[in-house]
Design a protein around this nucleic acid. Structure first.
Length: 486
RNA sequence: GGCCACGUGGCGGAGUGGUUACGCAGCGGAUUGCAAAUCCGCGUACUCCGGUUCAAUUCCGGACGUGGCCUCCA
């Protein structure tokens, strides 16, 4: 089997391109992670899931030990401060902030796990990288790309001739919008903050520019530099050293293209004097909820944990991998209208696959089917991959489909799906009490041709959400399997 | 106002310059004591208006519509 060529859509060039890693032995990916001030909502779940699929695919194509995936945790931010003051008014600010960020971060990790996502290779926190940010800022000042004004350090966008490449907009276009507040101390209205002063009651770190805190964009420039270049550069190939500081893929939501990613590029390229921060820029599309923009005021704001743990959405709880499939049913760059119906469809599909894969025993090294990998390798064509999966499932359901069954199970595992999350079976440990006795009674009734009694037992179980499925074994004796809706 | 996506059957969702996936739901059949599960089969679409072409859902232009960014945001 030949390894398929990976193709990815690059926002920078607005085309699908063959993916060529700078160093195939060290494929490097950075994705903007959450700002930990509140529960992650289902919109946040999309990039987490999409880039998890990319991570899994890269590990498959290049080897699990040859991919570094960094996803940051932004734990310094004015929204966090506000939340800390609101929720813990009696605590000292730093302690209150830690409470907010620690609980939110733990919740985020739990959510990501429930969605079937692997942990990234590194999950750096902004507050652990303040020194790196300060060093980067100092370099930008020394290079003439940043200046101090009014107690702030600002990036000078005019100092970068090709600023705006990623978003495809130039500074004059932005000015025409006239929605950028003009601040007198800025040389140019589009100049953005690298470091800002903190009041005594705000979190802050000492710096050459006074006690303050970093701007948002500088965090990602500093952390990607540290974890995708500085700390691993000794292992990188000579070819990689031809392109110092640059890494392979940078991802995030569509909304981050401007200004966040644009500004990251400006900072990193100007600090290091390079022509590219990352070679490929990938952005996932947005989602709406039941046809409307998700917002707190509309009351359709749904968090991941609400979906998993409460009955707020559709009157029931949803398994994490159903949410995962609902998210992946649509290509990652297309918009999604998130709805109960969509979740139900995902669940139906997942249940079919899990039924077809039931009974397979997997070994550790069992990998995905080539047809599925091939579709994913074409710009993460998950939907086409799921069609390939359906083909395998059909084979598995036919007589003598043991090989297909095994292949299906291995592929599901590879894609991050459980094998029984929407299916409870006799193999499961959670058999309801008295079920075995009820089934035995019913079989006895059937053998005595007492269909009325047998059907009564079946109806009673159905009310408990248990579905019975009769079949016959090789000898012609009746067998009963069961499933629970959960 | 500027920039960027998108518009396919009841729903989800691929794809293609000519023969029009796939899934769900629906319908019919096989199987079943009856079901369920499974298998087999069937139907309906390419926003609108121009243009290019022997031929467009697919290419070009325009209109309309939806969403996003331009300010914190996945």
């Amino acid at each position: 089997m030949t390894t398929p060529q990976l193709t990815l859509y690059n926002t920078l060039t607005r085309t699908k391109e063959r993916f060529v890693p700078i160093d195939p032995a060290n494929v490097r990916v950075y994705v903007c992670g959450p700002t930990v001030y509140d529960f992650a909502h289902i919109g946040n779940a999309r990039p987490v899931i999409v880039f998890d699929v990319l991570f899994r695919l890269l590990r498959h194509l290049y080897g699990a030990d040859h991919v570094t995936y960094a996803r940051n945790i932004t734990d310094v931010d004015d929204k966090i401060n506000a939340r800390a003051l609101r929720d813990f008014p009696d605590l000292p600010l730093n302690e209150a902030i830690r409470k907010v960020t620690e609980t939110t971060e733990a919740q985020f990790r739990a959510d990501a796990r429930a969605l079937g996502c692997l942990e990234p290779t590194v999950e750096p926190r902004a507050t652990d990288n303040i020194a790196e940010m300060q060093a980067l800022i100092a370099t930008l000042i020394a290079n003439g790309h940043a200046y101090v004004a009014n107690g702030e350090v600002l990036f000078d966008v005019k100092s970068m001739p090709d600023y705006g490449q990623l978003s495809g907009r130039n500074l004059d276009d932005n000015l025409a919008g006239a929605r950028i507040a003009v601040e007198a101390h800025k040389k140019n209205p589009a100049d953005f903050v690298l470091w800002k002063q903190s009041a005594d009651n705000e979190p802050g770190w000492d710096s050459p520019w006074g006690r303050g805190r970093p701007g948002w964009h500088i965090e990602c420039s500093a952390m990607s530099e540290r974890y995708l270049w500085d700390e691993i550069k000794d292992r990188l190939s000579p070819a990689a050293h031809q392109h110092p500081h640059a890494f392979d893929i940078h991802g995030g939501g569509l909304d981050l293209i401007f200004p966040h990613h644009e500004n990251e590029i400006a900072q990193s390229r100007c600090a290091h004097g390079t022509s590219a921060m990352a070679n490929v820029w990938m952005h996932n599309g947005f989602l709406q909820v039941e046809g409307q923009k998700m917002s707190k005021s509309l009351g359709n704001f749904v968090t991941i944990s609400q979906l998993l743990q409460t009955e707020d959405f559709g009157g029931r709880k949803w398994p994490g991998d159903v949410l995962r499939l609902a998210m992946l049913m649509t290509h990652y760059r297309e918009p999604i209208d998130f709805s109960v119906k969509r979740l139900e469809e995902a669940e139906t599909k997942l249940r079919d696959w899990q039924r077809a894969a039931q009974g397979a025993t997997l070994a550790e090294g069992d990998g995905p089917d080539a047809s599925v990998v091939k579709e994913l390798a074409d710009d993460l064509g998950f939907h086409r991959a799921s069609v390939a999966l359906e083909v395998i499932a059909k084979k598995a359901n036919r007589d003598g489909g043991a090989a297909a069954k095994h292949c299906l199970a291995a592929t599901l595992r590879f894609l991050g799906f459980g094998l029984d999350s929407v299916l409870a079976s006799e193999q499961g440990a959670d058999e309801p009490p008295h079920l075995a006795a009820a089934i035995a009674d019913r079989l006895a009734a059937l053998n005595a041709k007492d269909f009325a009694k047998a059907d009564a037992i079946r109806a009673e179980l159905a009310e408990q959400g248990i579905t019975l499925m009769d079949s016959k074994d090789e000898t012609g004796a009746r067998q009963t399997r069961w499933e629970i809706k959960r």
